[in-house]
Design a protein around this nucleic acid. Sequence first.
DNA 1: TTGAAAGCGGTACCAG
DNA 2: CTGGTACCGCTTTCAA
Lengths: 339, 339
Amino acid sequence: MSLKIIANNLGLSITTVSRALGGHSDVSESTRLRIEREAQRIAYVPNEMARRLQKGRADAIGLVVPGSPLSFEDPYFVDVMAGAWSRLENYDLDFLVMSATPGPSELRLYRRLVEGRRVDGLIVTRVRPDDPRLAYLAEARFPHVVFGATPSNDRSVVSLEIDRRQAAEIICGRLADFGHSRIAAVGPDGMTCMVKRKQALKEIAPRFGMTAIDVATTGEPGEFERLATRLAVEHPDVTAIVGVCDHIAAGFATAFRAHGLNPGEACSVISFGDSLANVFADPPITALQLPTRDMAAHAVDILLRLRDGLPVDELPNWVGHLMVRASDGPAPKQTALRA
Amino acid sequence: MSLKIIANNLGLSITTVSRALGGHSDVSESTRLRIEREAQRIAYVPNEMARRLQKGRADAIGLVVPGSPLSFEDPYFVDVMAGAWSRLENYDLDFLVMSATPGPSELRLYRRLVEGRRVDGLIVTRVRPDDPRLAYLAEARFPHVVFGATPSNDRSVVSLEIDRRQAAEIICGRLADFGHSRIAAVGPDGMTCMVKRKQALKEIAPRFGMTAIDVATTGEPGEFERLATRLAVEHPDVTAIVGVCDHIAAGFATAFRAHGLNPGEACSVISFGDSLANVFADPPITALQLPTRDMAAHAVDILLRLRDGLPVDELPNWVGHLMVRASDGPAPKQTALRA
DNA sequence: TTGAAAGCGGTACCAG
DNA sequence: CTGGTACCGCTTTCAA
């Protein structure tokens, strides 16, 4: 009832008012001014639902966080949300945040979002091998961007990833300088992104005269002590640990300290990916800061281009930046891993 | 183009299809079945924008986090988001998450949300004295729920708060049992909710034979050391500190440890409100866990009732639950606060 | 430069 | 029980 009000008040047609406010050129300067003043006067704000229905767009982007709603607290998603929103805000688009545990209900949510036209694009995170979400979105030809890494090498799906080789080089370089020669890359095997990070470390380590062993985590609480013990037994020559996702490095540091070992001296700990937990940890954890927020902002741009059928430019090369803190140092003369 | 497709395929009218799918009673069982099967077959999902336009609803609830987008990482908002989403999911409503720094742009965002009909209701947090958002929402008669506390005693605005007296009793009771007699309530003065928490502590403390002094924080990093020093000088008889919002207690604990003092022995530290930071702190912080997620879920229910013009029931009495950890203990014989 | 009219995809009122 | 019709508020041809 709003364009109509302005139109009536001014004795003009709805059409003209719509065009004037829409910034079209085919409205005389004088009527445009009258219309703009009147719109200002009654504080006109267009009904978004009407506009969206007509335009066939949702003017919204969605993020479905995998896991329980509590996953919102994952510092990684916090960064994704912050980055995405900062860009969406500029475009005056809505940001839909949801969560869903992997499974049929997750897929149902995706269907409702896509087929109900509730969003124009989706940011997909924590991709798993053979992820049904990707299969669905590809089949539906719906704009989506994968955050992290894709299992397939399908060039048609846009995947935002950091330069893992460069990241591995930074980390390996630092550890090699400290005289380490055998390191452990620790992370879950369930997520494609994490698996690839471990692979990168294993590939790059030899270039620095080191070898990296692959250790799988489940993410259970209290797992780190067990892992540390196992490492001490099975790989007593490991003098440094790289946690490839949040909390792993901090978890090891805590486990070490619980046994009277000093992280950074007894065993170096570095985190691939940074968060507040690293800053607050004791000792603060040396970590590779990732440009997650920038990437999320970029993801929004890409989604809008996909929506509008525009080509997607070459992706920037996102690189990490090492935050040197206190959890790493020279390799101990002989391993102190006796947890 | 979807109801129409079903209608055409079946040689029925759009009206009938709409009613059958809408679960109205005035459709014959046989046609309803045909329609449902066909809908199933073509995997019909209604266009939400069309439905929303027609119904004059947004089918969405919004949360505007005050501050920069990074405020998403505030554990308090994480809980609010988790609680709100868990309920919205059941109703199949959208959850819009945004952030805005207090000021004109914040109010502009609210106007666009409200007047653009982009949400049906808003959760308002971190209310400040004379908050322009509340004035606006009240004037616009737009469904909103205040989370935390309202400055005015206006009974017309729904405000979700915990039972602060009960909370203060739990905390004061524990500290009194430990033999403390003078405690500090520390928190920012900018937020109504925090001010009220401090007031509650000051009011309740005497009942337990204690006195509580009010200490204002600004929230700057590194502030805690200064505050601890000031406390030691100005109030050397204070033996316990209650942080009324996230990170304050943990911040003090860190500051104490940095000076070789042992939180829990030299000075007790308790947090009014719990988060992971307390769990991970060294030592883990004793904290009053608040039912924030429950409250947020309830907020959604209330917003929907307000939207639909239904009366809002009496609010539950939300109480806190003390998580006993290691940051508090017997009052020291003589104050050790010499930071 | 302006306006009438046809949608966008639903829902709801009324007549049959 | 079913279908015609108007309408939600806006955008966009197409004529005038």
